[in-house]
Amino acid sequence: MTVPLQSVLHPAGPDAAIISQFAWVLFGGGALIFALVMTLVALGMGKQTRAVRPMRWIVGAGVAFPVAVLSVLLAWSTWRSGQLTAQSAQSAQSSQLPLVVSVSAKMWWWEVRYRDPAGGPDIVSANEIHIPVGRAVYVGLNSADVIHSLWVPALNGKMDAVPGRVTGLTLHADKAGIYRGQCAEYCGEQHARMALHVVAQPSHEYEAWFARQRQPAALPTDAFLLRGRQAFIDQRCSACHTIRGVAGADDQSRPGPDLTHVGGRAHIAAGTLRTHRGTLAGWIADPHSIKPGVRMPAAAGMDGEALRALATWLESLE
């Protein structure tokens, strides 16, 4: 089996590595203490009675032992936690100037915005966060509706997204890869299907990707793709979805994910389906058969040809 994508015990970054070590130390220490106590219990089930010195048990085992262990634990964990990347925007303003990404959690997907270093409008995407390997990225989090929680176990602990508050989380990968995360605060019917992926790329690949993202959707030359693009307009998809270069590039926030580069994302429906024309068509035709309760209405009165064209065109938007 390949390395699990969403595991606390398979860290891909320095923060997660520290916490993974915590996990093993705590497990080891806990197992030792558990074995010790169970041995004492087992001995207590023996056939003979024994004289006991209450003070030894109460003060020695009951007080001194846990106080000693917990003091060591507290000291060590405080020291080690100090080596985690601090979780606030203020401390993120170091000379290294980590990148800042805004994530707005919604029912049941993640809106991702990147600040354009050239000063242009934010680059808006969904459900996939790209980061360069080896740099700390500060993720500012908020929620548009209910409480969600952003959690990418391979990279860091989780942080709740609370309406009315802005919270933050640092993502720092030290090896390239795709790391899966999932919403970790129950947020309604489709909480189980609110995943996301963090794509950690070497710097040059990241820069190239970012440059592509800044481009709007190019006008296709192929007739079939043009048909699909027209279907997007005819079906008024832009009421909920922005595609820069087609419609809705007016900085107004829309209820659905930005689809300008949807074809370049590995998954749709917040990590539920892999992206290709078949799944796109199925999703557009009836999202509720895949994710009941989702806010997107099923396609009304679309003929099969138009649907396939639309799906193919969206798949081409890389």
Partner: peptide, 16 residues
């Protein structure tokens, strides 16, 4: 922990 060890001590002193 005080309670747990007191219980174990009681088990040691007696015969369960």
């Amino acid at each position: 922990a005080i309670q747990v060890f007191a219980w174990i001590a009681t088990m040691w002193r007696g015969k369960m």
